[in-house]
Design a binder for these strands. Structure first.
Length: 554
RNA sequence: GCCCCUGUAGCUCAGUGGACAGAGCAGGAGCCUUCUAAGCUCUUGGUCGGGGGUUCGAAUCCCUCCGGGGGCGCCA
């Protein structure tokens, strides 16, 4: 509400200053109203005068002063001043913070939520690991980023659907089955070598033993050639079970699970290629069928169907994205690991070739995760299949800390994740700092109740007693929640909400230290309990958006 | 060689066009007979990788060079 009210008033002031001849008409001025970095510059600042100065042929400060002279009244505004090179700074009155408190305290965790479905219909596709092994920490990062982003988009008023796409068809699955079969045969006492191009992870040995135990009898009665479908089906189910359990442990839910094999069964891959062909974007060369992706900015054309008649991975992906667009989403967001970034131009090209606006497909690339233990790198080799699984990380450090560390930094930044640091129950751990703020809220409320102190109806509370700087700061920070969510969602930057959580928690801890809530003064105690209720709402909202638990006690 | 990410305080990272560049940790000095000290206060510390440019204004945009990571298959 506030920045837009100020923006409107400043724009009006520019017009009336021009109309009154107080200032040459600068025409339309594209200026912004934002929170100044420096607190002493007030709560909001408009750069209108700096932007308009050239067109108005006056110095920025002269323009700013003219604007202030013609500024219409704005509710809850205490002070307006011209400062620095020509900023117009606005300071809010305490009455505004009473509004903020009431809204937060009454509205609970959803008090800053945008109206449901007021924005776009968005699909977020993430994790989408192939069902041939456990999730690793990189998948975990994509999972948490996708999950928190989904929660943010939802809170910001979008209709969000979360989808997991799994490649349960194709050559990779064949290699997986062959590797698993070899492990199983060995477990059954046979001689069998894991294929050179197969999977060599330690987990496969365990799965091979499991398979031998569960299905050994059945398998032994089958001719060697008939093992594969049985092994494949079992392996797929085993992998998916592991993936689903891990995601559940990490509190990452999905609305839809989409199978590549289903695409093939429904003939959608053929259909998609037919559509590209009909649009004239396909040609045959060197025995293969090519997509002329260079027409859409890709650096080289890409094969859709190989010389021996098999689909490349691109073909089903084209079909999959056609399917997505046909489901009517306004926007598709895919979250991929850094190792897939080179694939972006060809998929965008395919979307364009199918006749859709490629800007409706957004790719978020999460950079790598490096694992450390007390500063020492944890050696991992994906090739040898020796990696710390996401599940083990969650089991070791807990879902709360794992989630926080994985989402707290920008997706663009390589993430250094230290297991020992994440586990530490100390000041080095921002997870506990945030959760501790909530535990203090609950503790305060419990103590007040035990003392027989009640906050009473909000209408009867004297909020003007909340004059301590620490009290005002809590409400100022509370006021930011809606903006921060909107910004984090719009910029696809989930780490911002973690940073906001730290800011809010800091304001609350300071309040806790400076202001005693349960006091000899009943009116002051009631007002402060209402402030605590507002803080409770904000903390529940932030913890909920991060998918981190809200502990009653620490 | 080409493409993507990145280079900000000793460390881990925010900040991507605004006013003297921020936080946490680490280092130094304080605050618990009082609602949880997993907290609070003060303090030390930075040529925002280097150099050009655009702009009233650049950590932020453009060019270039240097360092780190990742990707460049008819593999996914």
């Amino acid at each position: 509400m506030f920045p837009s009210a100020i923006h409107e008033a400043v724009a009006a002031a520019l017009r009336s200053a021009a109309a009154a001849g107080d200032l040459p008409d600068p025409g339309e001025v594209a200026f912004v109203v934002e929170r100044p970095r420096d607190r002493s510059h007030g709560d909001w600042a408009a750069n209108a005068a700096l932007v308009a100065a050239r067109a108005a042929r006056r110095s920025p400060r002269e323009v700013a002063e003219a604007v202030v002279r013609h500024l219409p009244p704005i509710a809850h505004l205490e002070r307006v001043e011209v400062a620095g090179p020509g900023f117009i700074n606005f300071t809010l009155a305490p009455s505004w913070y009473a509004v903020v408190l009431a809204r937060a305290a009454r509205g609970g965790a959803d008090h800053a939520r945008a109206p449901a479905g007021s924005r776009e219909r968005v699909q977020v596709e993430f994790v989408s690991s192939n069902p041939n092994g456990p999730l690793h920490i990189g998948h975990g990062r994509g999972g948490v980023v996708g999950d928190v982003l989904s929660r943010l988009l939802d809170y910001a008023g979008h209709r969000v659907e979360r989808e997991y796409y799994y490649n349960d068809a194709g050559a990779q699955m064949g290699r997986f089955a062959a590797s698993l079969e070899a492990r199983c045969r060995r477990a059954l006492g046979e001689e069998a070598a894991v294929p050179e191009d197969g999977y060599h992870g330690a987990y496969l040995e365990a799965w091979g033993r499991e398979l031998a135990e569960e299905m050994g009898g059945t398998l032994r009665s089958l001719p060697a050639a008939e093992w594969e479908p049985v092994v494949l089906r079992w392996g797929l189910a085993r992998a998916m079970q592991d993936i689903e359990e891990t995601l559940a442990l990490a509190r990452i839910p999905f609305d839809a699970w989409f199978s590549e094999a289903d695409l093939h069964r429904r003939g959608e891959v053929e259909e998609a290629i037919g559509l590209l062909e009909a649009n004239g974007h396909v040609y045959r060369a060197e025995g293969a069928l090519w997509f002329r992706s260079t027409d859409f900015g890709d650096e080289k054309d890409r094969v859709l169907v190989t010389g021996d008649g098999r689909y490349t991975y691109l073909a089903p992906d084209v079909a999959y994205h056609l399917d997505k667009f046909r489901r009517g989403f306004d926007r598709l967001i895919n979250i991929w690991g850094a190792d897939h970034h080179g694939y972006v131009p060809r998929l965008k090209a395919a979307v364009a070739a199918l006749g859709f606006d490629p800007d409706r497909l957004e790719l978020i690339i999460t950079q790598m995760v490096n694992l450390f233990r007390s500063g020492e790198p944890v050696r991992m080799s994906t090739r040898a299949g020796e990696f710390v699984t996401f599940r083990r990380v969650i089991e070791e450090v807990g879902a709360d800390a794992a989630r926080y560390y994985l989402v707290a930094v920008s997706p663009d930044t390589t993430l250094n994740f230290d297991l020992e640091e994440a586990k530490r129950r100390s000041m080095e751990n921002p997870v506990y700092y945030l959760q501790y703020a909530y535990a203090r809220v609950r503790s305060l409320q419990g103590f007040a109740a035990a003392q027989g102190v009640e906050r009473g109806p909000l209408e009867e509370a004297d909020l003007s007693l909340l004059r301590d700087p620490a009290e005002v700061e809590v409400l100022k920070q509370a006021d930011r929640l809606g903006e921060e969510v909107a910004e984090a969602a719009a910029r696809r930057a989930p780490h911002r909400i973690a940073a906001y959580g730290q800011d809010f928690a800091a304001a609350f801890h300071k309040f806790y230290t400076d202001c005693r809530v349960v006091t000899e003064d009943p009116a002051l105690s009631r007002a402060r309990l209402w402030l605590v209720a507002a803080a409770e709402s904000v903390l529940l909202a932030v913890l909920g958006l991060l998918g981190i638990s809200a502990p009653e006690h620490m």
